[in-house]
Write a protein that binds this DNA or RNA. Structure first.
Lengths: 228, 228
DNA sequence: CTATGATTCATACGTTCGTTTTAATCATAG
DNA sequence: CTATGATTAAAACGAACGTATGAATCATAG
């Protein structure tokens, strides 16, 4: 079997697709752009992946498989160490979001490009993408939610789920918008080079997420006089 | 001038476009879908708006003009009341994000549909949309950032800008993902009807945002031994 | 060296896209 | 009632899309 060339071609296509999907979105990227940037023939995508949709899924699977396994490894290790006792919220948050962010420093795992793609894709309208991501994420997400339930027994589960959701959003923006929202915020802050910025983003975001997660519970205006 | 029909048509197109852009994204929505749902002729969009891009801009302008003016009104009123003294962070956050969220309860102003569209679009890849939104947002954003700088004089400005960014992300997800991430999180929480959910979302999110905003400042690992 | 299967290539297919054109229809002013 | 300008309608445009086809090219097994 002659796989030497095809592996190269596959990888080149995945890299180009990852980059272009990040920059222009799924619908906004054409097969001709992808094969053009990858320097391969137009038909190569359908030959190696079958379709554009399958290519997109493979782009994500290539990175998410590792990420989710790593998250599982980290959580398992922490829970083994704790020996049945609840984990600290900061541990759990770091296991889920910190692992993700540290992935950005690893160019072998896609670096910031994939992280930005992921950040943007979580709000992507395309149905099949959301369904695919939901499926890929579900098992890990459930484990981390359970850990949070255990770590914060006095907080209603609904509240924890909401705050997990908020944390996802803040993280997604922190990644995706590292340059996207620079336009909006205009920054005017002392410039840091990108690796430096990433190093500092982790503690910055982590501090914000933990502050939000441990914030006092909201008081609903109908808390006493409940109408229904 | 016979404007009776054209106003109806314009509005019908804008409503359909708002809904479809929210559901399938800008690139994922075709002119034929829009005119089909609006019940108007295909050529009507180009007649009334000139192009698909201009239509998209008009969809946003119709809502954002009011929103940003309202945000300005609220901020001006609060600052007038404070008479030079710094505002409370909770006031500022509520003025910016609370105003946005309460817009969702106002069906005349687009309701949840527009809010979801906005949430998703802030991470939209299309260049012209981001540029347009940045332009529309800049003035208001700057005023609110200044207010936060004044309210939190002991916090470095860079940190405030980052946290504003994080808050935007959390809010965006809170809106856009009200059903998008239901797949991912699987919820399994007691179901609330949608108006009830929105009523409760505001204090929930506000509590999270304020917790994050006022969280202890992050400690950078190189804080003491600075290499450069 | 040749045969074989994997891969690459140029090219074309059928659709759908946003936009444009030209004619029909409408509301209203004179 | 008729003329006029605004709006709607039907049809078509070229371009770009994702995909499929069949021949050329490659690496390797026998």
């Amino acid at each position: 079997m002659a796989e030497a060339r095809s592996v190269d071609t596959r990888e080149r296509i995945l890299d180009a697709a990852e980059h272009l999907f990040m920059a222009h979105g799924y619908e906004g990227t054409s097969m001709r752009q992808i094969t053009g940037e990858a320097g391969v023939n137009l038909a190569a995508v359908n030959y190696h992946f079958g379709s554009k949709e399958s290519l997109m899924q493979e782009v994500f699977r290539r990175r998410l498989d590792w990420l989710n396994e790593e998250r599982m490894r980290v959580l398992n290790a922490m829970e083994a160490e704790a020996a049945g006792k609840p984990l600290k919220p900061s541990q759990i948050v770091d296991g889920f979001f910190g692992t993700l962010l540290r992935m950005a420093g690893d160019e072998k795992r896609g670096g910031v490009t994939f992280l930005r793609l992921l950040g943007r894709t979580l709000t992507e309208p395309s149905e099949f993408i959301r369904a695919f991501l939901a499926h890929e994420y579900k098992v890990v997400m459930d484990r981390y939610k359970e850990a949070l339930f255990k770590a914060l027994p006095e907080v209603p589960k609904a509240e924890i789920v909401w705050r997990f959701h908020f944390m996802l959003g803040a993280t997604s923006y922190a990644i995706a918008g590292t340059d996207a929202l620079r336009l909006v915020t205009d920054w005017q802050i002392e410039e840091e080079d990108s690796t430096d910025r990433l190093d500092r983003l982790v503690p910055r975001l982590m501090s914000f997420l933990l502050g939000g997660l441990r914030s006092p519970l909201p008081q609903f205006s109908d808390a006493v006089a409940d109408s229904k």
